[in-house]
């Protein structure tokens, strides 16, 4: 699982990137910080014996998805983001929720998993192996995911096309 130093460095980078993403006024900066975060996580994947995932993380997430984000930001000219929630109550609530989530989920995870020794074997995580698992054990969820993507495509089409005049009239 890598050395503590490497972990701490990477963790620091990813947390820093995440916080920066959250606090940036400029949406483009936020997107770039998120890419940084994703990159750090991709390194974690490499550490955690998931090279294929690391590659996918970089190409799909940091690459395709984030390009899409940037593209939209640029398209809409929404670089100047709307800022943060300004009410004190809202911030307090968010703070409490955040604290509880951090501490609570940690406590839960530790009490569930704490102290268990890591497995002695190292899993075979070559893409072929993953593919076998995916298409043997998870073939049905895979298909469902395909349907999900299809629905997303159809939804996108529906939302992005312009209504005809007749349909406008009917809507009204």
């Amino acid at each position: 699982m890598g050395g503590p130093v490497l972990f701490l460095i990477l963790a620091t980078i990813s947390v820093f990137a995440a916080v920066s993403m959250l606090t940036s006024k400029n949406a483009v900066h936020s997107a770039l910080f998120l890419i940084l975060n994703f990159a750090a996580i991709a390194v974690f994947y490499l550490i955690l014996n998931a090279p294929f995932l690391a590659a996918v993380q970089i190409t799909v997430y940091a690459g395709a998805i984030m390009v899409l984000f940037l593209f939209v930001i640029m398209l809409l000219g929404a670089e100047e983001s709307a800022g943060v929630l300004s009410t004190r109550t809202g911030q307090l609530t968010a703070g409490i929720i955040g604290a509880v989530l951090v501490v609570g989920s940690f406590i839960v995870a530790v009490t569930q998993m704490g102290g268990t020794a890591p497995a002695s074997v190292v899993a075979d995580t070559r893409p072929r192996t993953l593919a076998v698992i995916l298409f043997e054990e998870f073939v049905f969820p895979f298909e469902v995911t395909g349907v999900l993507l299809l629905v997303a495509v159809v939804g996108l089409y529906v939302m992005s096309r312009k209504l005809t005049n007749k349909e406008r009239m009917e809507d009204a």
Binding site: G90, T93, A94, I96, I97, V100, L101, G104, S105, I107, V108, T111, Q112
Partner: peptide, 19 residues
């Protein structure tokens, strides 16, 4: 979103005491 997260939080708290 807030209410959703409140729910998540409550669940987390529940799991803390349930475990």
């Amino acid at each position: 979103a807030l209410s959703l997260f409140i729910g998540v939080t409550v669940l987390v708290v529940y799991f803390i005491f349930a475990s």
